[in-house]
Design a binder for these strands. Structure first.
Lengths: 199, 199
DNA sequence: TCCCCTTCTGAACGGCGTTCAGGTAGCGAA
DNA sequence: TTCGCTACCTGAACGCCGTTCAGAAGGGGA
């Protein structure tokens, strides 16, 4: 076979990412492969490489959507005038999002880039904008605090929560503790709020 | 070829683990494979499977040593009567250990077990004993605190630090913040101490 | 109608973890 | 010393993986 009329170039590109997202969301990143993806879209494996540089490229596109989705979840978080309360609301938004998109969230951080591969800058920017939202809560919490310190507090809380959730998602939190992940996350929020108030 | 006189059964078993540890420590877990290991010891790939169930088994043996080494590093940590100070000393011991054994430490948590594989109980026990040491600092910090709460505080600190260090080791802490890992770890210790004091 | 260019195929390459039939070296017995 | 026997080791093979690329063929413009 050769050129097909099934899909336009753009359609096929979108189909590839859509299907990749589906496969990862359903079965996780471990069983995801170029062959399984090409089988799912009904094209030969080689076709993928006419539309994307490599599998890494495809997973990165999927990850972009996952990040964008989390930004939406943050935007939809229950509003509150109390910055501490707001941090808990963001935590809930985060927990809710990864509960639904567990495998996609794992793909974001577990997928191994081949060494030397650089992370796209907009990728970092997307994460940074999430962290900025968290940092703003600390600024409201302690208006006297230098902006840089508030930003760092946001980063630290984000990193702490993300890390613990990663541990949980990969089934390894049980190696360290036997507790509900939501309780742990909210305890971390309380702790970081307390530290900001007394810092 | 067939049975060789090069090594006794025990020697060969030890040679396999020794060499595996060497390879992982030097090049990391990503390039580690049954074929690279068998090449390094000068035996055929199949030989590995006469001594260990599978690669997972071999990596688990290496991980055991890594955990035991960390326990030794903890035992060698600078002593202090001040439990908060002591937590910082443990943090330094931890940071020092993983600085030297970065790849081995990564192997501990990044190696993917095939699904359904259970973690050996002594493996969990080794981690638990490390956490107990941390928990004891919290008991000294707040003798009035229920023992369970102190234990949980130890778990939470351990999980937080471990997680952030994992992020750093996999080169992804930079996605979240641009700070020295040691500074972050000590800040986390301070924060958990503060929370324990005010909790 | 014809031809060219774009697109797609699928075999092939070198890797992976793992299995297992076959062969041989070492050892105990005669 | 010689002869099995057995424990051990080999290496080809299986079915995966990501990726490449020569070749085939459909779509669109002339």
């Amino acid at each position: 076979m050769a050129r097909r009329a099934d899909h336009s170039r753009e359609e096929l590109g979108r189909l590839i990412i859509d299907t990749a997202e589906d496969l990862i969301a359903t079965d996780g990143i471990d069983t995801f492969s170029a062959r399984s993806l090409s089988r799912a879209i009904g094209y030969a494996p080689g076709t993928l490489y006419h539309h994307f540089a490599d599998l890494d490229d495809i997973v990165t596109q999927v990850n972009t959507r996952t990040l964008a989705g989390l930004a939406l979840a943050f935007a939809d978080a229950a509003p509150s005038d109390d910055p501490a309360r707001m941090l808990h609301n963001y935590a809930d938004a985060f927990l809710g999002y990864i509960a639904v998109k567990r495998h996609l969230w794992n793909a974001l951080f577990e997928f191994r880039r081949k060494p030397g591969q650089v992370v796209p800058t907009w990728y970092i920017a997307a994460i940074a904008s999430l962290i900025r939202i968290v940092g703003e809560c600390f600024m409201r919490l302690r208006p006297d605090m230098p902006e840089a310190a508030a930003r760092e507090a946001g980063q630290l809380l984000f990193a702490s929560i993300h890390s613990v959730v990663s541990l949980e998602n990969s089934g390894r939190l049980g190696l360290v503790m036997n507790r509900d992940i939501a309780a742990v996350v909210h305890q971390l929020v309380d702790m970081h709020v307390l530290a900001a108030r007394h810092g």
